[in-house]
Write a protein that binds this DNA or RNA. Sequence first.
DNA 1: TACTGACACAACGTCTGGTTGTGACATGCC
DNA 2: GGCATGTCACAACCAGACGTTGTGTCAGTA
Lengths: 309, 309
Amino acid sequence: MNLDAVRTFVAAADAGQFQDVAAALSITQQAVSKRIAALEKDLGVRLFTRTARGTHLTVDGQTFLPHARELLRAEARADASVRPGRRALRVDVHSRRIAPAVLLQDFHRAHPRIELDVVTLDADVHAAMAAVEAGTVDATFHAVPVAARHLPAAIRATRVIDEHHELLVGPRHPLANARTVTPAQLADHRIWMPGMAPGTEWADYYDVLAAAFGLTIDLVGPVFGNEALLAEIAESAQLATLAGVHTRYLWPDSYDLRRIPVRDPAPIYPMSLIWRDDNPHPALRALRDFLDSRRAQTPDEEVWLPPWG
Amino acid sequence: MNLDAVRTFVAAADAGQFQDVAAALSITQQAVSKRIAALEKDLGVRLFTRTARGTHLTVDGQTFLPHARELLRAEARADASVRPGRRALRVDVHSRRIAPAVLLQDFHRAHPRIELDVVTLDADVHAAMAAVEAGTVDATFHAVPVAARHLPAAIRATRVIDEHHELLVGPRHPLANARTVTPAQLADHRIWMPGMAPGTEWADYYDVLAAAFGLTIDLVGPVFGNEALLAEIAESAQLATLAGVHTRYLWPDSYDLRRIPVRDPAPIYPMSLIWRDDNPHPALRALRDFLDSRRAQTPDEEVWLPPWG
DNA sequence: TACTGACACAACGTCTGGTTGTGACATGCC
DNA sequence: GGCATGTCACAACCAGACGTTGTGTCAGTA
């Protein structure tokens, strides 16, 4: 199916005659006739009945028309999604399972009219920041490990998420029935977080956290997927794992896993929005305002932050 | 934007390399490369990064991919909407404001998966029946003015709607506060139904109805649209009009119009579903079953039917 | 170092899709 | 009736898009 033919069909359906369409599209009447004929041949049905005073739609034409319009709208959206200068706001969330993705979903609900593209660059802070600098993405969420004054000239960053943590344990774990736990309490228990590659920002964070409170956090180990991890935790009387409160899991009901807030102090994983100061995208302003308003709601409490927070 | 190029792009995004796509589409690797390059030039962005081991999507490619899929789905739907042999069930409702349209909306709600095309042929029974016979539409709703045995050979018809009537009056009309009215009561009042062209099946119906109960029904008169009619009725202390209970009006609240059921006997406008017996469309069976089940719910009461009912 | 397997570029042929020119047909005016 | 007018369709022609084959380049690998 040829989109130019479809476009011509819609124009002809609106105009009622081929001549006007030809003028509007800056082609000859014969070309319009040919396009329509080709489309009809392609579809295997007649779309117009031709008369000496113009054309009108057949029943098939009537049926096809709304679909044709939708097809052209889809084309326009597809084009706009990547066309430099007017594409949707493109935000990197690092992972679709963590807090930034959840927050963006809220943003989308709050501003359904704003076109949003959520992507996962699969890159560390530095690569993501380079992508922002290059304009590949409009913004990214990351823990920023350097002071603001050491950022590249055009890059701005503000802390927008203080991700709290929960302990995930199965029903047989000693802490299974605790309402909250403190980091100090966790020193007696083994915490298992497979899949954190050394050198990543998350691994660094949990290393520093472990050192600060004398915890035992196993960051390595084979990764069989989150479901396997959760199943193992649910079964075990010793194993526990930590997760951000906004982390999304496939969480089968049958597991009976407990999510216990970690408090006093609450270890915080601080994440910033990173963007280019000279990015003129109007939706970027809206996103920043939204994130600021969200952050204002955070209650006061005793927290623990990594040295770079 | 070329849909073949988009299709190739989606295939390449799935496959991860151009060679396989070429094989799958029965073209050469070079042709795939060209299509993608053309699409990239068209959009103004790079969609793939090429390596010696294949390709992977750029951020723009990631962004474009879901839109591309949607575009192809839209194309498939557009094609399926008219493609002979697998198009949606196409039903003529004569007018979108009357009972059949309402019923089809219910049908759609009951069977949201069944693709349905509601069209208005703008034709009388005979022309609509010819359309059914020709296969232009799969079914039509009409009052059938002849006995079943006089229908064309392949055509079937069953009564599926017994449309009841309501009297529409303004607050100053003598019957404004009646809970129901009988046809006999209406003999004393002028009923105004402009826009019923003589010779149409509706005009015939109201003529016969008027004769049966000694009513005064003005079928002619200038038509300024339904809103104008309703406004006039609402203002008047004499004028009233009849309408099917399922008729959809633009009904401004401010009018304070009263809808009063007509009973004892209830004049029925009988409508049939008309279809070709040898039409194999699976959704046709579903529609007939749905209409049969609806009809079974009709309660017993005293009714008046036109001679052809 | 040579081989393999990936994509890109170049040259060339076919066919799609445009143009111009003309024909068929209905309508309306004289 | 005859003719002008306006519609769309058909035919001939031509440019360019898009396919093919052949070859180049590059990275990973034996």
